[in-house]
């Protein structure tokens, strides 16, 4: 070890003594919690972010239930019961955009650099980003579910099904948030992230059988929809929440397994890439 040099310390603000540093594990938990708090405190102050998790899902629900829904008839099922699981699946995928925009904003503003120049564990910065985003998206999904229930959505699942659905939603949010964090670090510009995010996720979510069955689509969109990962989310939630089974491609026949598979795949690819990117982002 290098001998510590004794330097004159400036009496800048007649500071209180810093408590001695706890071990890494405790610091990691403490710093992650502080940084999550920072992210959550900002939600109500950024109108776009607030509306992303509140107004936008409510709007989608109302729009499809009362405007388009009146013209959509799906045999054997009330449209509320068809639509709500779809919206929940779609919300998970939209998490990519939320997480991406938040990450891009942080990386372009220099705030992340400031955190990195502090003696904080570096994992805490990225963990806080992911956990904070997941919490934000859960909020959005609870609002969608709440509005749906108020407007007549009746899920058909027991206690086991409810627990299964919650675990699936958490897994989906976790995977798609990591994807968003990685995209945000690569794109680094929040407007571009927003634009690219919508251009990719919105069409995929329409093709995923969120609002109308894939089986009734024209050949080309049907082919895309059958293999769209978002279809697995939508069909998976629908199967667990309503017991509605989808058919077509392998993933539509086994949506829950397919959804878990997609999520694990996305996580396995994105987590190491995002961590590496984070470590080297500014220390190229």
């Amino acid at each position: 070890m290098t001998a510590t040099a004794t330097l004159p310390v400036a009496h800048v603000a007649d500071h209180d003594i810093l408590p001695s540093r706890p071990n890494r594990g405790i610091r990691y938990v403490r710093e992650t919690a502080l940084l999550i708090g920072r992210g959550l405190r900002m939600i109500p102050r950024v109108p776009e972010r607030l509306s992303d998790v509140t107004i936008q899902p409510i709007m989608f629900t109302l729009l499809f239930l009362y405007v388009f829904g009146s013209a959509i008839h799906i045999p054997g099922v009330r449209y509320q019961d068809y639509l709500l699981p779809g919206l929940i699946g779609q919300s998970m995928a939209f998490g990519v955009i939320g997480a991406g925009v938040a990450t891009a904003t942080d990386f372009s503003s220099g705030v992340i650099d400031r955190f990195r120049s502090l003696p904080v564990t570096r994992m805490s910065v990225i963990s806080a980003q992911v956990v904070g985003q997941v919490i934000e998206q859960i909020l959005g999904i609870l609002i969608v579910a709440g509005v749906g229930l108020a407007l007549g959505w009746r899920p058909h699942m027991g206690v086991g099904g409810t627990v299964e659905l919650m675990l699936l939603v958490l897994l989906g949010l976790f995977a798609f948030t990591w994807l968003g964090v990685l995209a945000g670090m690569l794109i680094r510009n929040s407007d571009a992230m927003q634009g690219i995010g919508f251009a990719v996720v919105l069409p995929l979510s329409f093709l995923a059988g969120t609002f109308v069955p894939i089986s009734g689509m024209h050949a080309i969109p049907r082919a895309i929809g059958e293999w769209d990962p978002l279809s697995a989310l939508v069909a998976g939630v629908r199967q667990v929440a309503q017991g509605i089974h989808s058919h077509g491609s392998w993933q539509l026949d086994h949506p829950v397994v397919a959804m878990i598979g997609w999520c694990l795949l996305i996580t396995a690819v994105c987590v190491p890439l995002a961590l590496r990117r984070f470590r080297t982002a500014t220390s190229n």
Partner: peptide
């Protein structure tokens, strides 16, 4: 990092706090 304090070229503050 425990000894140094950096004020970067561009203010690194959280705009929404």
């Amino acid at each position: 990092r425990g000894k140094i304090s950096l004020t970067g070229q561009f203010a690194a503050l959280e705009d929404n706090l």
